[in-house]
Design a protein around this nucleic acid. Sequence first.
DNA 1: TATTCACATGATTTTGAAAACATAGAATGC
DNA 2: GCATTCTATGTTTTCAAAATCATGTGAATA
Lengths: 147, 147
Amino acid sequence: MFSKSCEYAIRAVVFVATQNNAGNKLGIMEICKEIDAPQHFTAKILQSLSHNGIISSQKGPSGGFYLNKTQTRLKLIDVVRALDGDKTFTGCGLGLKNCSEKKQCPIHNQFKVVRDELLNMLSNTYVVQLAEEIEKGSAVLSNISGR
Amino acid sequence: MFSKSCEYAIRAVVFVATQNNAGNKLGIMEICKEIDAPQHFTAKILQSLSHNGIISSQKGPSGGFYLNKTQTRLKLIDVVRALDGDKTFTGCGLGLKNCSEKKQCPIHNQFKVVRDELLNMLSNTYVVQLAEEIEKGSAVLSNISGR
DNA sequence: TATTCACATGATTTTGAAAACATAGAATGC
DNA sequence: GCATTCTATGTTTTCAAAATCATGTGAATA
Ligand code: FES
Ligand code: FES
């Protein structure tokens, strides 16, 4: 559904959001350990997000990744768009080059419903609201038990 | 969303269904030309489908791929399951190893809705009904114009 | 029964996402 | 200023999906 980059990104951003109230910034190692993701790969992803203004970063000792005031209003769609673009919501289910009403594949009408539902879901889900799930303990960000 | 194999498979199966009433079997070259898919790769996919009883095949002169009586009742879900398994409907949206209510990721509840909608859609869509769209000319199976 | 046609099967190559590596550069605190 | 700690950037490696290549096997028909 989403690219690996996107999966790691969402997990990372949600984790950062859980720690954001306290005002502390999170280092890349800290994040990767928590969400059980490859360190170097995740670093690139977060740098890309930082570049796109999705998250903020701070260099130097006691630096790390965090969300500024504006960024705490982040929705899932913002993260997905920044990494996977919108091919997830505009691409053809059968892999045709252009998905349009004009020249459509046979599953277009049915597929569009599902695709739009996904778009709708991502557009209405806030990262901070997901972070709350983690804080409450009703959801996890990693397979590894005890984390 | 679906693997490339799966995309080609659906397009191929739908095309086979359009020609099935006439009772003629379709050769692999004929199919690939129509749906604009790589020949050898598609051949393997169709052989796999044939192996799984999704479609039928006939060797020798005037042989090819076709649907038998039972197979004309085929749903999309049958094709998807045969090639991609059901990881598409059971896998975690954030890439966690096991998706379950017990140990769920923060988007589980929202994602489940979309996933179930997709499963539902595929379970209620018949291949022959898609074939009709092609026959009516209201949908296409390839990017290439004039086909 | 030989020839031809079309699917079947296994090995191999290509491709691009995913991941790792190496190094540069910037900010903090002493 | 200098060491430390982190981000930033570019290159390389890995790996599995995607695609190709080469060869085998069964069926029709003359
Ligand atoms: S053309 Fe295939 S989904 Fe729109
Ligand atoms: S655990 Fe992530 S979707 Fe169910």
